[in-house]
């Protein structure tokens, strides 16, 4: 790989960290013009930048407004690069269905997890907010998801998470999916009680959890 490639990847990464949409687009255009592999540019440029932004968030250098702006820059660069992805370039991605459970419309946390999951190479189907349990199950079956990710900020809607797990069990397909939960009132204890596969305290933790949960499948493949 040439020096120019690496410089461009660094520019993409910095553009994300610096929340600079215009620079992300400019660098992405240059990647395309020079015929550099778009998949690598996303991986080593935009995603790497988002990962750095996530670290800043962990360290309380960045907060939610900064992360949203970083993700805007990442997606701006992504829009330029995506049409140039060679379909055989990327490995089969793990699939995640994500959404905020029924009765809740707080979705900042869910959006961050979605962004970070996409950044980490997951194929994410975002159902949005206020989603009834049955829709999570239907969608997971439909797309053959590996992970169902449930979010809520309100104690009033926590029960919906248990309902998803119950429905999976009732349909005899519980072991086909990993269920992960997160949000303000959720705890590891709650995750254990409803029989979820994992709990994440924040977006960065959710990525670690999702990776860990799909890792055995990868080793077996």
């Amino acid at each position: 790989m040439g020096q120019i490639d690496n410089e461009l990847f660094k520019r993409l990464s910095d553009a994300v960290v610096d929340m600079d949409e215009d620079e992300a687009i400019a660098a992405a255009n240059e990647v395309v013009e020079r015929g550099i592999d778009a998949y690598q540019a996303i991986e080593k440029g935009l995603s790497a930048g988002m990962e750095r932004a996530g670290q800043f968030f962990d360290e309380e250098e960045y907060f939610i407004p900064e992360l949203l702006m970083c993700s805007d820059a990442m997606y701006a660069g992504m829009d330029v690069l995506k049409p140039h992805l060679r379909s055989d370039g990327a490995a089969e991605k793990h699939k995640v269905v994500i959404g905020v459970v029924e009765g809740d419309t707080h979705d900042i946390g869910k959006n961050l997890v979605k962004i970070m999951l996409e950044t980490s190479g997951f194929d994410v189907t975002d159902l949005g907010r206020d989603i009834p349990p049955a829709r999570f199950v239907e969608t997971a079956k439909e797309i053959g998801a590996n992970i169902i990710a449930l979010s809520t900020l309100m104690t009033t809607t926590m029960d919906g998470m248990g309902a998803v797990v119950r429905q999976l069990s009732e349909e005899g397909i519980r072991d086909r999916f990993k269920v992960i939960v997160g949000g303000g009132p959720i705890s590891q204890g709650f995750a254990d009680r409803i029989g979820a596969d994992g709990y994440a305290v924040n977006a960065a933790d959710a990525i670690r959890l999702a990776r860990a949960l799909v890792a055995p499948a990868e080793a077996a493949a």
């Binding site: 407004p65 900064e66 949203l68 702006m69 707080h106 979705d107 900042i108």
Partner: peptide, 10 residues
Amino acid sequence: GADKLARLMM
């Protein structure tokens, strides 16, 4: 909306 307010701050 919270997302929009967060972006407007910047």
